[in-house]
């Protein structure tokens, strides 16, 4: 299993933001994308996860291999922690939610309504969902926002377990993830250049 991205170009709101992005992530490896705000990290991740079409280039894996976690966790406030997680386990047909509860230390909270959790606890629930999906490629956007130090360690531990199991991870962040072994890719060099002004073709840009 490896994720190969070749010459990828992505657009946000119809405007190209990154182009010529190429990288390979091997099984057991984590790649961290870095770059300033608005440079297109989220767009790149959403494109890789298959949520939006690429302008150009290839993504070497089917979207069925990807599990995506974005800025919002998709948590239903009126359902309990266990129900929230069990729903995704059922949707992805993976069965047990115990390892996920274990990995993010949610066992003590599992019968609480998710609406009563703190921001950090909600985030942990959102990340526990990745374990439940059972998919080999984790695509994570700012995974450690609002997590405290011990929760960041939990996250790093969960990612390491995932990598040891032959999975791989693609992440975007500004904050230290506690994953020193992860490779870092700066996306700034891939910033899309404006096309020539007289290129008045079908795409208008």
């Amino acid at each position: 299993m490896e994720l190969t991205v070749t010459d990828l170009a992505v657009a946000r709101g119809g405007v190209p933001v990154l182009e010529g992005v190429s990288f390979t992530v091997m099984a057991g490896e984590a790649l961290v994308l870095r770059g300033p705000n608005g440079c297109g990290k989220t767009t790149l991740l959403r494109t890789v996860a298959g949520l939006q079409p690429a302008l150009a280039g290839q993504i070497g894996l089917e979207r069925e291999a990807m599990a995506y976690a974005g800025h919002s966790d998709g948590i239903k406030a009126v359902l309990s922690v266990r129900e929230n997680l069990q729903f995704w386990a059922d949707v992805f047909a993976t069965g047990s939610i115990e390892p996920a509860l274990e990995a993010f230390d949610l066992n003590g909270l599992k019968d609480r309504p998710a609406g009563s959790l703190s921001a950090g606890q909600k985030r942990r629930l959102g990340l526990a969902r990745m374990v439940v999906t059972g998919r080999p490629v984790w695509v994570l956007d700012e995974p450690t926002v609002s997590l405290d130090v011990s929760a960041v360690e939990m996250f790093a531990g969960a990612v390491r377990t995932h990598l040891r199991g032959g999975g791989l991870a693609l992440m975007a962040t500004h904050i230290d993830l506690g994953l020193d072994e992860a490779r870092v890719l700066d996306v700034r060099p891939f910033k899309a250049k404006a096309p020539a002004l007289d290129d008045f073709d079908g795409a208008f840009l």
């Binding site: 709101g13 119809g14 405007v15 190209p16 933001v17 899309a192 404006a194 008045f200 208008f204 840009l205």
Partner: peptide
């Protein structure tokens, strides 16, 4: 109008 919007977007891109 579309071209104008595209040019404005291009400005932001620059």
């Amino acid at each position: 109008a579309r071209r104008t919007r595209a040019l404005l977007a291009r400005e932001r891109l620059g």
